[in-house]
Design a protein around this nucleic acid. Structure first.
Length: 306
DNA sequence: TCACGTCAAGCAGAT
DNA sequence: ATCTGCTTGACGTGA
């Protein structure tokens, strides 16, 4: 069990998701920004390792406009060695990595242009992970997509489009249950057809499920991950106190997390804390998880590989 | 230096 | 119709 948080670290004093407006695009601007972002990503990862945070989601803004037609820079070649260097750090410290393309990335869109743009966006994500030299356990997580008034057809469209994707994409893609459209059962059905692993989002499941208990849910989705995929990933968060809304909590609720660890025993998973205050809550989670043998085992594994 | 309108992209639900 | 939430604030113009 590794614990991490997504994209942003407020403590290190730099940002790996720096971007700029499309209007102010220039090759120089892109190169400067990516150089900054990669440098900062290294700093964040070093911070993380020092604090036993061995799971991290790399921002999709690492290379701004990477899949936009305006981008003619061969950033893959230009940043080849820096990407490899970051990848070496990740491998040396056995850090688990995920990426999460944003809401515009839709495999099952009715609009084929949206689909085509999504494939380009996915290739960008895959290239980042490939150039870092990471194995297929570094995942790219997606939601199934829209319903478009017909869930069955939209599910079939997802499966058909997925099957035709390049193998380099398919080996890294995982689907995540969402809070409105496709719940755990919907994802499991798609997984049964395609073999795609299902990433479990605890918060979304609370809002949108078929009534499974946590144990039942864990029994089902963990099976969709094969050895080459690495440990099953889980997005953990809780909603804001006093609000039934879809908003994430500002900071971790220690008792809630403690209970989550107890409930999920003995399933071994990597936990991504989707909480506003980022590493601050993740550090609290680490303190709680130090009592858990699954977490201790992961730390020992990391130390052995130093 | 700072306020504030706006930012590549889609979808669904609430208001 | 318009706004909000999603991984989330922050870019950058105009004064």
């Amino acid at each position: 069990m590794k614990i991490g948080y997504p994209c942003i670290n407020w403590a290190v004093g730099c940002k790996a998701d720096k971007t700029f407006r499309l209007q102010s695009y220039s090759e120089q601007r892109l190169i400067e920004t990516v150089a900054n972002n990669l440098h900062c990503l290294s700093k964040i990862l070093v911070f993380n390792v020092e604090h036993n945070l061995l799971f991290f989601r790399i921002t999709s803004d690492l290379v701004p406009f990477a899949s936009h037609p305006i981008c003619k820079v061969n950033w893959q070649l230009y940043f080849d060695s820096q990407l490899e260097e970051v990848g070496d750090l990740i491998k040396r410290k056995s850090i688990r990595i995920s990426m999460h393309p944003d809401q515009f990335t839709l495999i099952n869109s009715l609009d084929t242009r949206v689909f085509e743009n999504s494939v380009k966006e996915l290739f960008y994500h895959v290239q980042v992970l490939d150039l870092m030299g990471l194995d297929p356990s570094a995942k790219i997580q997606l939601h199934v997509g829209g319903v478009y008034g017909n869930k069955e057809k939209s599910t079939i469209r997802f499966i058909e489009r997925f099957e035709k994707l390049d193998e380099t994409l398919k080996k890294r893609l995982v689907i995540e249950n969402d809070d409105i459209n496709y719940n755990l059962q919907d994802c499991l059905k798609i997984s049964a057809e395609t073999g795609i692993p299902v990433l479990f989002d605890v918060f979304h499941h609370e809002i949108n499920s078929s009534g499974e208990t946590t144990k039942e849910a864990f029994k089902a989705f963990t099976k969709t991950w094969k050895k080459k995929d690495g440990l099953p990933m889980v997005d953990y968060s809780s909603h804001r106190i006093g609000e039934s809304s879809r908003k994430h909590a500002e900071s971790i609720r220690p008792e809630h997390f403690k209970q989550f660890l107890q409930e999920t025993n003995p399933f071994d998973i990597d936990v991504m804390l989707e909480i506003k205050d980022k590493e601050k809550s993740a550090l609290k989670a680490v303190q709680i998880a130090l009592q858990d043998y699954r977490f201790k085992r992961a730390l020992e594994g990391s130390v052995r590989q130093l």
